[in-house]
Structures are given as C-alpha cells and as structure tokens.
Computed example of a mutant assay.
Amino acid sequence: MFHFKSLSTEQFEILIRQYSARFFGPLYSSKHDNPPPSQPIQPQMVERNSDSTLGPLSDLENRERSDTYSHTVLRIDDTWRVIVCPEGLQWILQKRKGYLGGRPAWDGKSFCRSKTGLRRAIKDKVGAIPPEIESQLAQLPDWVQL
C-alpha cells in the first residue's frame, strides 16, 4: 500500500505514469513527441463502409440479440426462437427479454450442437410446441451447420 503523503509531487507523477503505462499505455509527458491537441477534438460523423472487413456482425442490426438477426432458424412463438451462432458452431435457443433501444431483444438460454440436445432444451424451456414448428425442427440436420 502506498502512502501518497510521503511522496513528492515528482515521485507521485512518476508512479502514476508507470501505473498508467502498465495498464493503459503511456501517458503524455513533455518527453513525448506528440503533445496533446491545443484545441478540443470535435466529434465527426463516420460513414459505415458496406465493404467492412468485420463482416455482417459489424452491423448493429445483425447481432445475435437483434430481432432481425440473419441466422434465425425458426421462431417458435413471440417469446422463443432458435438461431445459429455467427461461427456456425451451435444452435442457440433464445427468449425475448424485452426491448433494447426501442427494438425487441433476445437472450440466449440454451446452447446446443445436436438436434437431440436442441429438442431437449425446447422441451425443458418452452414446453409443448405446435406441430408446424415440430415439423420444421425435424427438417434440421442432426448436427448444427451454417
């Protein structure tokens, strides 16, 4: 534990620089080549590039919790749905959790790699499902694929 009262101002500044550099990168000091800007930085509008290197997940509308997520496999009802994760490794049984930013948001409740596991999760969490959803579920492959 440090007692700051026993440190000189110079010692204190050195200690803060070392701590900050260790956890946050180097701080500005008179020894650096790039001084801070003399005027405040003004916010700028940034246009999104449709050719983004981050792919479709960079789009806020295509996140797993988004109501318009592109890898939705089936909607069981207004409260439950099944999606494929972005990496194509698993099905995710999601429950609608309300609204986020004025739009419906979804929360993952079960994560399954096999159709058997997905059926079990739906039975445990959702209960009985309509026959048309059961037939859609039967058409899924035995293991998840994107």
Rank of each mutant, 00 (worst) to 15 (best):
F4N: 00
L7W: 13
E10K: 11
I16L: 08
R17K: 09
P26L: 03
L27N: 06
L27S: 07
S30M: 06
K31A: 14
K31D: 13
D33H: 04
N34M: 10
P35H: 10
P37T: 05
Q39T: 11
I41D: 11
I41L: 13
V46W: 11
R48C: 10
N49L: 02
S50N: 09
G55S: 08
L57A: 02
L60E: 09
E61C: 04
R63N: 06
S66Y: 04
S66R: 04
S70A: 02
T72N: 08
I76V: 02
D77M: 08
T79M: 14
R81F: 12
I83C: 04
I83V: 07
C85L: 15
C85T: 15
G88L: 02
I92H: 12
R96E: 01
G102Q: 06
A105H: 09
D107S: 12
D107T: 11
G108H: 05
F111M: 12
R113F: 14
R113Q: 15
K115N: 04
T116W: 05
T116Y: 07
R120K: 13
R120I: 11
A121N: 00
K125M: 04
G127V: 00
I133L: 09
S135F: 06
A138G: 09
Q139T: 09
L140C: 05
L146K: 12
